[in-house]
Design a protein around this nucleic acid. Structure first.
Lengths: 213, 213
DNA sequence: TGTACATCAGTGAACGCGCGTTCACTGATGTAC
DNA sequence: TGTACATCAGTGAACGCGCGTTCACTGATGTAC
């Protein structure tokens, strides 16, 4: 929540208003998605005029960028906290789903259809790799079935940084991510409604399949 | 392409213009996504005034609805054609990916972040079940590993209609769908860029894992 | 402690834009006798 | 075959809206001497 430690009262106030702007922005996004985010609407909600926001953000894109970064950062923090607690893959899977269900629009802001014309800031890549690092630690001993893909991934392990996990573990971490994302995004986009089964059960089944190879 | 067989010249002309409107709409969507779709822009592109479009579509939502329906219908047709040709799961997987890569925005229109405030027409559910029916046929003999989820799905098989596939096959069809969707949507949303590996290889690996349980 | 000045948060008016949608209309195309 | 009428595609003007963003400004808060 707090901005990089403010000292003077003015700086403290600035950080406070900035935070409130973001809070209101999240409320709007939670209500109707990122495309409905309007600077004027936020200002009105805070009882100030539209142009006042330009004291705090250069423009709309900068605000969105910061929201995306914060969202991503939050997920990474949760993952790292879980890792520090020494949990295994099933709990990481739950962490992921809890985070997604907590605010589906936030989830879509990070993993959903890219906003047209919007370019993700470069440092989200760094945060993404933090998430992957946690996954790789948890997968170090795991492995999906042997597959030619593992020779491909062994030669293209740039994304894994200097992590020492063997190819089978890299593969495992990737499918952990993609499979869970598959069920989650279809669920949150409403594609399971009317089908009759419980999405949580399917998610749990996928989690089990990933934890016991 | 053709609207339900027109007879009189006027009807033929109407259908023709309707189709061109849709074509231009797809061009816009392919360029910048569904949220950028503008009736006025389409009209201008066709050399007519904005209000003229209201002869053909009641409003913007009706146009979008029809586009979604057509997109979904197209996917279902490809699946059914593939099924008629007697192909197996790997080819169905390829059909899916080819269709998605052909026009990512079309893919996202169907499977992406739901458009805020937009309600999917009820008959897309029917088309979705056609797709699932093809999948179920192909999965009839397949099965993922035994899992408690299969008892859940056995009791919640409404979505499968009157298909006779055993629970393990139902489970298999579901994860076929969700896992492929996972890699596909992350790839199309750009989340693999900069990671270094080839998304096609990962997709192929997931396909193999689903075809040889 | 008091005064002079600089900083800066916030305002209100304005710009230009494009959107979806309505309305009364013109003029061409088709239909009936 | 010709005339009278109905249908209907398309126009142009207009409405009301909300958006992001700029600009010159006021007035309060903080800083320096």
């Amino acid at each position: 929540m707090p901005e990089s430690d403010p000292k003077t009262p003015r700086e403290r106030y600035r950080a406070q208003v900035r935070d409130e702007i973001k809070t209101r922005a999240w409320e709007q996004i939670a209500g109707a998605g990122a495309s409905a985010l309007s600077l004027n609407a936020i200002a009105k909600q805070m009882g100030m005029s539209g142009p006042a926001l330009y004291r705090y953000f250069a423009n709309r894109d900068e605000l969105i960028t910061e929201l995306i970064r914060d969202a991503y950062r939050g997920l990474a923090d949760r993952f790292q906290a879980a890792a520090k607690a020494g949990v295994g893959l099933p709990d990481l899977a739950r962490t992921m789903r809890d985070w997604a269900l907590e605010d589906p629009h936030r989830y879509f802001l990070v993993y959903g259809t890219p906003v047209p014309g919007y370019q993700a800031p470069p440092d989200t890549t760094l945060i993404a790799s933090e998430v992957m690092a946690v996954l790789l630690d948890a997968c170090e001993a795991e492995g999906v079935a042997e597959d030619p893909f593992q020779t491909h991934i062994a030669e293209h392990r740039f994304w894994a940084g200097d992590h020492a996990a063997p190819p089978a573990a890299l593969h495992h971490a990737l499918v952990f991510w993609t499979r869970l994302h598959g069920t989650l995004s279809l669920e949150l986009a409403g594609h399971f409604t009317g089908m009759g089964f419980d999405p949580a059960e399917l998610y749990a089944a996928e989690t089990r399949a990933l934890a016991t190879p």
